[in-house]
Structure formats: structure tokens, C-alpha cells
Nucleic acid binder design. Structure first.
Length: 252
DNA sequence: GCTCATGTTCCCCT
DNA sequence: CAGGGGAACATGAG
């Protein structure tokens, strides 16, 4: 699941349950640790008090009074509080009273340890601005410098961070723009529509802490394959290595 | 057995 | 250097 709205949900979940608590011990799966062993992570975090998390794009940074735990959720990662043990538990933080668990079945996500703020910057520094921080002026500058297909730009985390396959498709559908359109070919009205659509999709998703997949949304109709607005059969194409859904009638 | 899955990175082309 | 295409990573579900 994890795109910007999902990770925003994880951030709130983390702050509700873990922030302010002290790490007593931890147990981790070495195969999802990207720059640290479970033992070294334990040594770095044990006894430290967790602060509030912050999100940049699809990344969650969890400061621990010096070092930070950095989480990425891949395609299916999630957080849980005091759950029953599960085979896909990759990190179990004992925060007595309570246990925070990071789960990731496919192991496409990962866990990093950043020794200090400079190390966080080194990890996330190449990402573009978080989409929530992209104002209209920045959006125009983003488009001015890019070529290629619209969908690819929205998915490119180095351009701006946080949109994924679902939120990109939903935004293009709201804006009634063909995902294959050249970025440079947009006129002023199309740019305005796209910007408003992206903001709207994020604004409407964030309260849920996920992309809600309502029936009035494109992404709530992937299975049925019909456009929620006009009823036409949806098209399915491979763009930028991902399946892209769009309405052939309205998005052209 | 097959295809597909809300992500990122790396490699090879153009 | 920018962008596109594909493979790889790992583990399912249908």
C-alpha cells in the first residue's frame, strides 16, 4: 500500500503509540536491514527515548535522541502495535509497556540506522521535495525542467516525493490528462488542473491514512474496470514499468 | 504452472 | 545528462 497518504497514516500511528517511549530492547530480521545489523541497531537504540516521527515522501524518520531509525515500507510494509506474532514481523521494538512492530511480507522495504542528522540527509538527500510542500510556483519549475511522460514524472521520487502508482493514476484521472502525455506539452489550464488534482487526491486521502479506493475514485474501480464518471471501459497500459489505469474517453 | 501486486535500484540503450 | 525499458529483489494471492 504505502504511498504518501499511507505513510502519513503510519506517522500518526507511530506518534500515537511509540513517541515518548523508551526502547528497552529490539529484535530484527537482518534481511531487511540495509546498513546495520539487528545487533548494532539494538546497541544504537537501547535506552533511548523516541521522539515524534517525520515523513518525507514515502520515508519515515524516527529520531531517538541522537540517532534515527529510518523506515521504508516498500510495496506492502506496515506498522502494528501489540499484535500477535506474525511470520512477516521484521522489527519488533520493545517499548514497555507496548511493542511496536514493522511488518513487510515481500521485504521490498527496508530499515536503516542514521547515526545523526547528517546521516539522515545522506540517506534522503536525493529525494525531491515532499509533494505536500510543492506550491504552485515550485510545481511549474518542476514541469519546466522535465521531459517524458506525465505518469513517469509523477512517479519520479527525485522530482518530488510521495506519489506512487495509485495516487499518480488517480491524480491524472481527476485532471482528465492522458498519462502518456509529454510533460512539455501541457498548456496553462492543464497544468492548473493537474496541480489541483494532485493536491485534491492527497488532501482527500490523508484523513484516511491511506488511498481510500472509494467507488467514486478511479482506484476504487480497478477490478470492475469501468470509469466511475463516464462508465467507459478503463484502459490498462504498462508505463514506467507499472500498470497504469486510465479512462480512454476522458483522458486524451 | 501462470500472472500480477500501492517500490526502488541498477544496467543497458537511445 | 535525461529518459525509456527491463530485470532484480521477495513473497504471496488468484
Amino acid at each position: 500500500m504505502p504511498e504518501l497518504p499511507d505513510v502519513e497514516g503510519f506517522r500518526r500511528f507511530y506518534d500515537r503509540h511509540a513517541a515518548g517511549k523508551t526502547v528497552r530492547a529490539l529484535r530484527g530480521d537482518a534481511s531487511v536491514m540495509r546498513n546495520v545489523t539487528p545487533q548494532a541497531l539494538g546497541r544504537a537504540l537501547a535506552g533511548r527515548r523516541l521522539g515524534r516521527a517525520r515523513r518525507h515522501g514515502k520515508w519515515l524518520v524516527c529520531p531517538a535522541n541522537g540517532p534515527s531509525l529510518v523506515l521504508h515500507f516498500g510495496m506492502g510494509g506496515s506498522l502494528a502495535w501489540n499484535p500477535d506474532a506474525h511470520p512477516h514481523d521484521r522489527l519488533v521494538l520493545d517499548l514497555r509497556p507496548g511493542v511496536l512492530v514493522y511488518r513487510d511480507m515481500r521485504k521490498l522495504g527496508g530499515i536503516w540506522l542514521a547515526r545523526d542528522e547528517a546521516a539522515v540527509e545522506a540517506l534522503l538527500g536525493r529525494l525531491g521535495p515532499d509533494w505536500l510542500d510543492v506550491d504552485r510556483d515550485r510545481f511549474d519549475k518542476l514541469l519546466d525542467r522535465r521531459r517524458g511522460a506525465l505518469k513517469a514524472l509523477l512517479m519520479n521520487q527525485h522530482a518530488a516525493a510521495g506519489l506512487g502508482n495509485l495516487t499518480a493514476d488517480e491524480s491524472l484521472w481527476r485532471a482528465r490528462l492522458d498519462p502518456r502525455r509529454e510533460v512539455r506539452s501541457l498548456d496553462a489550464d492543464e497544468r492548473r488542473r493537474l496541480y489541483r488534482a494532485i493536491r485534491g487526491v492527497l488532501r482527500d486521502s490523508i484523513p484516511y491514512g491511506l488511498v481510500p479506493g472509494k467507488r467514486t475514485w478511479l482506484t476504487g474501480n480497478r477490478e470492475r474496470g469501468l470509469c466511475p464518471r463516464c462508465g467507459a471501459g478503463l484502459s490498462r497500459r504498462r508505463i514506467g514499468g507499472r500498470t497504469t489505469i486510465f479512462c480512454p474517453c476522458e483522458q486524451s
